[in-house]
Amino acid sequence: MKKYSVLIGIAVVVIGLFWAYLVYAGEPIEQIKKTTDKIIDIVKDPALKAPEKEPERRKLIRAAVDEIFDWDEMAKRTLGRHWRKRTEEEKKQFIYLFGKLLERTYLDKVEGYSGEKVIYVGDRVEGNYALVKVKINTKQETEIRVLYRMRKKDRKWMVYDISIEGVSLINNYRTQFNNILVRSSYKKLIEKLKAKVGQ
């Protein structure tokens, strides 16, 4: 009898843990912190500092960013109402190019990291959406307010927009893309994107 109760006990614990695993996707703010710490570690790693290590370093950073960035959603939102008019093939290509564009910009910024302090202010969750507030204190005594917009996707919190000092990245790109789309064509936009990412 005693043997069975132990077994039942173990079963309850296992089921409980599994349930918790299913329900608990982690706090959005923890996700941001985890990824930020990971990236800072890569940038600070002396073994990766040498110039010839740059491709490796960039690959590692991109991998860390990929874990938390919802590229599909970002690309979709930058095209806005123009998204629906695109074919599957075009959508795929656009997501790829947009990811490359952000990668270039983001990596440049990240690589310029020189000991800025990151303060995790707080987060707010409403259903499947969340906001995370972060403050970056630069060495020049200025404060940069960063707001991450996140969405739960397959039980994981993913970033789909970043606002810096109230300027949303996605809104900024949407305005630029829309401006090009309205004045010329989708083809022209892709040409410009390709030229920008150097392909």
């Binding site: 707080g122 707010r124 969750v125 259903g127 707001l147």
Partner: peptide
Amino acid sequence: ETKTSSDFESDSGWGDESVVP
């Protein structure tokens, strides 16, 4: 489910704070 951590509203200036887009 709506959850807000205590420090979230301590300061403003982050921009549009509607959670659901």
